[in-house]
């Protein structure tokens, strides 16, 4: 076997593994954003939840020795931020976008402030399952190390899809997001539904953040997030507010982000930073390709259309 063959196969398998590894935070944040937007509000603050979750997860894992406790606390932090967002947004004349931006900056700032002491120490990481253990190739084995959180996300996406279609609460969330008037006429407490949706969405974003610090890249520092929380908003639009599409879109984004490291791993260092920009270029390309001056985005919740 010559090096050329291994290289091409290596790139493919590394991109695939990277899609899963890099895509997992995208998946959790986008599912959270999807749930929030389905209830008729946009939470741009999920980037803050993500960074806060990453810090809290890492810190708690280091202090307690249990990474899973870290994940839980990261989610709780997300719930807290979701609560603040919902609480502020239900006041009269408050704009959810502005609150989101404020919380994004607040969340990152607070995480950097509290997280200073956790930059040096090494915390226990989340376990993974070696689906590639049958192989002799270290490339394959590394790529097919799948984290348990990803498997949970894999189950969560179809579960959410089912929830929106078949569960009473799912239908109520959709009603609130499609038409606040109709929801009011049914006697639904709109603010409560939106608050619970935003808090649940915040939980998922927090969990997504803990994946960043506890598995991949797997440490806590201030450059940990590269805007995953914000890109998830674009991803939800691309996914047409469908949780199943969120899964596919996350993997696509993850794959794009893994392109640079994958090429580097087989020795192609040319254009490393250019390939690292792939997810951002993809975001732009998707937004341009799917938008039109003449038509509205299909599937957009009615309450988001009529603003």
């Amino acid at each position: 076997m010559n090096g050329e063959d291994v290289g091409l196969f290596g790139i493919l398998i590394a991109v695939l593994g990277g899609a899963v590894r890099v895509g997992t935070p995208f998946l959790f944040v986008s599912l959270g954003e999807c749930l929030t937007e389905k209830s008729g509000r946009i939470n741009l603050g999920l980037e803050g939840n993500l960074v806060m979750g990453a810090m809290a997860g890492y810190g708690i894992s280091y202090l307690s020795g249990s990474p899973w406790l870290g994940v839980l606390v990261a989610g709780l932090c997300g719930i807290g931020f979701g609560f603040i967002h919902a609480m502020l947004c239900q006041q009269k004349g408050v704009n959810d976008i502005a609150v989101g931006i404020a919380l994004m900056i607040f969340g990152t700032g607070l995480a950097f402030f509290i997280g200073k002491p956790f930059i040096q120490p090494v915390a226990p990481r989340l376990p993974s399952i070696g689906f590639g253990d049958w192989s002799d190739s270290p490339v394959v084995r590394a790529a097919l190390e799948i984290n348990v959180l990803f498997l949970l996300g894999l189950l969560l996406a179809p579960a959410m899809w089912w929830f929106f279609r078949n569960a009473r609460w799912g239908l109520i969330v959709r009603t609130v997001g499609e038409s606040a008037d109709a929801a009011l006429a049914m006697g639904i407490n709109i603010n409560r539904v939106r608050m619970l949706s935003t808090m649940a969405g915040g939980f998922l974003a927090g969990v997504g953040g803990s994946f960043l610090s506890l598995y991949y890249p797997g440490s806590w520092n201030e450059g940990l997030s590269s805007g995953q929380g914000l890109m998830a908003v674009a991803l939800v639009i691309f996914a047409r507010w469908n949780p199943l599409n969120c899964l596919y879109a996350s993997l696509l984004f993850g794959g794009a982000a893994a392109l640079g490291p994958a090429l580097q791993s087989v020795g192609i260092t040319w254009g490393y930073y250019l390939f690292n920009a792939a997810p951002y270029i993809l975001t732009l390309a998707i937004m341009i390709a799917t938008s039109s001056s003449r038509r509205r985005v299909a599937g957009m919740p009615g309450e988001l259309v009529s603003r």
Partner: peptide, 16 residues
């Protein structure tokens, strides 16, 4: 109209 445009007739009727 108080119907929800992005849902089916059946979904609207059940929701009521």
């Amino acid at each position: 109209f108080t119907l929800i445009p992005n849902m089916t007739v059946a979904e609207n009727l059940v929701l009521a």
